[in-house]
């Protein structure tokens, strides 16, 4: 027994060192669990407030760029308005609409809610964006986030108080599905942690016809994002040697360097789709 105490006294520094290292690594590994339990509420609020104050300064310097992108977004929306198009005569016929006009909100599948970015990182291996705004109380874990030009940015991982944390596409655990616009093949998006803006798309079979510059869109499978939102364009195609898939590199359309505003997508289908998938998984086990 005495020897044990002697040992502990002799190596107390080493033991403390090992203990603190293991504690840190435990935090890294189980950050999401731990985060929600203890860390989230106090620290997130505190750092969120500091980030918000600082962002007021930074925001001012980016006003010009934000304004430009808003003008462009508006331009695209104006171009989509109906009076820009010649509508075929047949559609002008008066006929009885089966959908009641009043209840249109019932048939709305997706609703966009705006939010303001207060903190954004791109240099780490796991990058997060912190957002705030009037709509935060409507945000839920798992909602999709798109940028100002309607391109995928990430998914909400956590909401507390006035702030929500978004796992951006530039996160090594971020796994969204992407789809080739041309052929319709679906694969998994991941980030290798090197260049912000370059993602890789896996599980695309070699039978797919694909060329540089092809568009990758959201698949709409998980109902987090509407189908067809831009993710990026193909910049590199490499055949895998070990299996029958391509390894595709794509450049994201969203520019992660200067995100100022984002939209969170409220999806009517997300919850039912998730429930039914879980049920299917449970019955498979």
């Amino acid at each position: 027994m005495g020897n044990i105490f002697l040992f502990i006294r002799r190596f107390s520094n080493l033991l403390l060192f090992l203990f603190l290292q293991v504690l840190s690594i435990y935090f890294i590994v189980s950050y999401s669990k731990f985060h929600e339990a203890a860390f989230g509420n106090t620290a997130n609020k505190f750092t969120g407030r500091i980030n918000k104050q600082f962002n007021k300064v930074e925001y001012y310097f980016q006003l010009k760029r934000t304004n430009d992108s808003l003008v462009k977004a508006n331009e695209r929306l104006y171009n989509k308005l109906r009076y820009n198009f010649n509508i075929a005569d047949s559609s002008d016929k008066v006929f009885l609409d089966t959908i009641k006009v009043d209840s249109v909100s019932r048939f709305r599948k997706f609703n966009f809610l705006n939010a303001k970015v207060v903190a954004n990182s791109i240099a780490a291996q796991s990058n997060f964006i912190v957002i705030t705004g009037d709509n935060v109380h409507n945000f839920k874990k798992g909602m999709g986030i798109v940028g100002i030009n309607n391109d995928v940015v990430g998914v909400i991982t956590e909401v507390d108080g006035n702030y929500a944390t978004v796992m951006s596409l530039l996160h090594k655990d971020s796994k969204l599905s992407g789809k080739l616009l041309k052929g319709g093949e679906t694969g998994t998006l991941s980030w290798d942690g090197k260049k912000p803006n370059i993602l890789s798309l896996n599980n695309i079979p070699k039978s797919a016809k694909i060329s540089l510059g092809d568009t990758i869109i959201t698949s709409g499978f998980s109902a987090i994002f509407p189908k067809g939102i831009l993710i990026g364009r193909v910049t590199d195609i490499q055949p895998e040697t070990t299996n029958n898939n391509y390894r595709i590199a794509l450049k994201t359309t969203a520019n992660f360097y200067n995100i100022e505003y984002v939209y969170a997508i409220e999806s009517a289908d997300a919850e039912p789709v998730k429930n039914i998938l879980e049920k299917a998984k449970a019955s498979a086990n």
Partner: peptide, 15 residues
């Protein structure tokens, strides 16, 4: 805590 994943800098600092 500013970057929402605890542990990384703490481990490096302890080292």
């Amino acid at each position: 805590s500013f970057w929402h994943n605890p542990g990384f800098h703490a481990a490096a600092c302890v080292l």
